[in-house]
């Protein structure tokens, strides 16, 4: 297990390789479909401080607001990342993001973006919303809650030992490409035998 503490520098991120298992601590920021569209189209500045040298989490959590105004994470696993493929590389470059946590992997544009910016794609276990919510220590801030709603807002989470696996690195490596190629080859041999 490799410990990653945010803010994290480019050198540390570039040292990571596909297959490395990491535990993330520090501040991470949720952003999914609307948030990515918004970041690319409107380039908001208020979130810059939270994103620089930090990690984006593709997640739409279930949240509970306490009477004192603080937030508790009820459930928070990753959502499918590939929907952000058209935005991700630009978002990482613009906001100097060092990593993206999600599920399912991403495509060639993001892979090229990881190499250019110096960032990694971190795969968390989809559906494991309780195991992952347990790692959230506090929720210091939220952006765009009124407009985007609970699942699509930018939630800033302080996490301790959030587990993930590097499945795309800054050296062009992608576990997803490898698994897909093997599956396609096996598929051809199965259907040819029918």
């Amino acid at each position: 297990m490799i410990k990653i503490n945010t803010p994290v520098d480019e050198e540390k991120i570039r040292s990571l390789k596909v297959g490395d298992e990491v535990l993330i601590s520090g501040s991470i920021v949720t952003a999914r479909d609307r948030a990515h569209k918004y970041m690319v189209e409107e380039r908001p500045d208020d979130i810059r401080g939270d994103l620089e040298n930090s990690i984006i989490y593709h997640c739409g959590p279930v949240m509970k607001k306490h009477d004192d105004g603080t937030w508790e994470v009820v459930a928070a696993g990753p959502t499918t990342s590939i929907r952000e493929e058209i935005y991700q590389a630009d978002v990482m470059e613009e906001y100097k993001v060092r990593g993206v946590i999600g599920k399912g992997g991403m495509g060639p544009k993001t892979l090229a973006g990881l190499a250019k910016t110096g960032a990694v794609y971190l795969h968390a276990i989809g559906g494991a919303s309780q195991v992952l919510a347990r790692t959230v220590v506090s929720v210091p801030r939220v952006y765009k809650l009124e407009e985007f709603g609970v699942p699509e807002s930018f939630w800033v989470f302080t996490v301790k030992d959030f587990p993930a696996v590097v499945t795309m690195d800054s050296h062009g490596g992608s576990l997803h490409d490898k698994i897909l190629a093997t599956a396609e080859e096996e598929f051809r041999s199965i259907v040819d035998s029918l």
Binding site: C59, G60, P61, V62, V74, A75, A76, G77, G126, G127, S129, Q130, V131, A133, R134, P151
Partner: peptide, 11 residues
């Protein structure tokens, strides 16, 4: 965990 806390298995 979800079962014992009556919380969503998936968010």
């Amino acid at each position: 965990m979800a079962q014992s806390a009556s919380r969503p298995i998936c968010q």
